[in-house]
Each structure stands twice: as structure tokens, then as C-alpha cells.
Simulated assay, not measured.
Amino acid sequence: MRITGILLATCLMAMLLSGCWDQQLLKDVRIIDISGLDLEPDGKLRNTSSVMDVSGSQSTQKESNEVHSGKGDTTRDLRDILDREISGIYSSSKLRVILIGEALAKEGIYPYLDVLYRDPTSALNAKIAVVEGSAREAINIKKVGTKLIGEHFNKLIQSMERKTVVPDVNLQLACPSMLTQGNDFAAPYITKTETSPTISGIALFYNDKMTGTLSAEDSLLYLLMADKLAKDANLTLKVENAENQRPENYIAIDIQSLKRRLKINVQDGRNIKVKLDLKLKVTAIEYPRDHLNEKKHVTSLDNTIGEELTRRALAITKKIQQANHDGFGIGQRIQAYYPNTWKRLHWPDDYAKVEFDPKVTVHVVNHGIMN
């Protein structure tokens, strides 16, 4: 009995320890925290990766990075090429951000991301962003202030997500939209300035191809229309018709809450109408004209802001239709609720014919501590 118990205990211990066969020791790998993909003029793919290096003790820890770039036929081929010049095993298990050059984004990104979806060690929570021009140039900056370029882009994207300027999108969330029709995704769009890269809006995708952009002001309203209010959302609007640019002609609002109602109506089997009602409760965080304690003035202001945002919302729906970007999931809803209609549609063509009727209603519910 004693021998049987020892054998059972040994087998149990062997089963518990069997998961260590595929371990990757940190001393053997080089961590890639940001990677960029570009399409070269000759059709080749270029991968530019920033490799993190941590040295010193815990109290005097110093972080640095080295940038490696290579040109090849596929993403897997490039990984092998970079492996030959990096002193360690190329590892994307801690990847924070993947930057896509604009030329490659317009070509279609899924074939170049396929290797990341098949690798069980890939960081599927890595952020995706599109760069105006070349991703290589953005990564070659290496450092912005005291932050390494990977950390800088990661923090920059996260802060814009909290401000409802860009959507929360990563490798995992983008994948279903790239493989199916009826619900497209958008990603941060990064441009260059004299000092450092900046997020200037969002890149619109149809399946896996970039087809257009929205400015930061439009992207905020687009996300509200998509019912994706994050922690903060601020807008500055002109509410007076005066030609001068005096501060008294503007109001800055902070969106406290929203209610969105989206209704799809299909007529004659093909004519699709979408009514999108957006109700916003906002706080006036800057309004030099004041008088916000007067109900009549506040009501007039509510109407003015609502009309301006409705006008902008209609313009946004036209822009996303021109880009063939179904960011509100209209096609997905038709598939679910009108399956017979969906079978008769050719969505890339019929989406442009959808009639959008957006309406934004605004209520200023707070005006700060001033009376």
C-alpha cells in the first residue's frame, strides 16, 4: 500500500510539473515593446522593432532601447531576419503597440498580422494605430522626453481612449471586423509634428483596409454616435454667429452621460433607413457669456448646441459612407433582424445607399460653481 501511495504521489507531481516544457526564460529573449510595419515601393514588407533593455539594480534601474529594421516578404520571414541581428530570441509576447504605415493600411493589414494570431505567445491586447507616412520614422525617434518610444505611444493612445478621441481597439478586438462584413473598426491615426508624433484623429477601415480618416473633433462625436462614451469627453463649439473669434462666442462642454437609440427600418426589401437619436447631458466648463442661471438662456443654448451637433453628425455619416466604413454595425443588425433582406444585398455597394437621420439633443445640466 505504501509503494502504491508513493507511485500515485509521483504521478500527481509529474502531472503538475508537465506544463513547464515550453517555458521561455527572460534571459534568453529580447522583448519587443513596439513594432512597425511598412510597405516598401518595391512591394516588400519592412518591419521596424524597438527592443527594450533594462540594466542596473532595482533601485538604479535604467531602461534603454535599440531599434532594428529589416526588409522581407512576410512578417514571419522578417522575424527570422531580425532574429539574426538581435542578441537573443525575438519575442512579441510583451508587445504594447503595433504601428501600421498608411500605404500598408490601405493595401490591407490582415495578411501581415496573421502570424500574430497563430502564435500562442502573441500579445493580443497590443494596441493598433496607423501612422501617416512611415512607421519606421516614428519608431526611430526612440525616445520622447524621458519615455521610450513604445511607452510613449502606449500612454498616448490610452489617454486619448479615456478622452473618447480614439476607440479602444487592439489585435484581438480588430480581428472579427477584418474577417466579416457588417461591423468595421477604426484605429488611432498618428501624424508627425516638429517635436513629436500626435494623434490627429482616427483611421476608418472597411474589413482590413484603411479607406478614410476623421479628425479628432469628428472622431469624438463619431464615438458618441457609436455609444462608446469613455471616462471623459470634451467639446468646444461656436454658439454665436459673430464673425470675430472672441472667446464669448464659444462654449466648452463636458459630456456627463448619453443615451443612444438606433432604429433600422427596411422598406421594399432594399431601402434602408437608420434613425439615430442621441441625448446628451453636459456640463458647461467654459462659457464667458455666463447667464447660465437663466432658464430661458439655457434652453436657447441647448437648442443651438443640439442643432450644431446634429449638423456635424449628418456630415460624419456621409464621410463614413464615402469610406464604406460601417462603424455602427448596421450590416450586422440587418443580418440578425432582416436575414432575407441581407441575402439580397451587396453590402459594399448598398451601404452607401443607406439613409441616415441623426438627431442630437443636448441638456446643459451643470454650469460649475458660478451662479
Score class of each variant (00 low, 15 high):
S87T: 13
I89Y: 03
Y90D: 02
S91E: 06
S91M: 09
S92Q: 08
S93P: 05
L95I: 05
L95W: 06
R96A: 15
V97K: 10
V97F: 09
I98N: 02
I98R: 00
I98G: 00
L99K: 08
L99Y: 09
L99V: 10
I100Y: 06
I100W: 05
E102R: 01
E102M: 00
E102N: 04
K106I: 11
K106A: 05
K106M: 08
E107T: 14
E107N: 05
E107G: 09
E107Q: 14
E107I: 10
I109A: 14
I109V: 15
I109E: 10
Y110T: 13
Y110G: 07
L113E: 09
D114A: 15
Y117T: 04
R118V: 12
D119W: 10
D119G: 09
P120G: 00
P120K: 03
P120H: 07
T121P: 01
A123V: 09
A123H: 06
L124V: 10
N125E: 14
N125S: 08
A126Q: 05
A126I: 14
K127L: 12
K127C: 06
K127G: 00
I128G: 02
A129D: 02
A129M: 02
A129C: 06
A129Y: 00
V130G: 07
V130L: 08
V131Q: 06
E132P: 08
R136Q: 15
E137I: 12
A138R: 07
N140V: 05
N140F: 08
K142M: 15
K142T: 12
V144M: 04
V144S: 05
K147C: 02
K147V: 03
L148P: 00
I149W: 14
G150I: 07
E151K: 06
H152N: 10
F153Q: 07
F153T: 00
F153A: 07
N154A: 13
K155E: 09
K155F: 11
L156N: 02
L156R: 01
I157T: 04
R162G: 01
K163W: 10
T164F: 15
V165N: 04
V165Y: 14
V166Q: 03
L171M: 11
L171G: 07
L171I: 14
C175G: 01
S177N: 12
M178K: 03
L179E: 14
L179K: 15
T180N: 15
Q181D: 11
G182L: 01
N183K: 13
N183R: 08
N183Y: 15
D184I: 06
F185L: 12
A187E: 01
A187W: 01
P188V: 12
I190W: 06
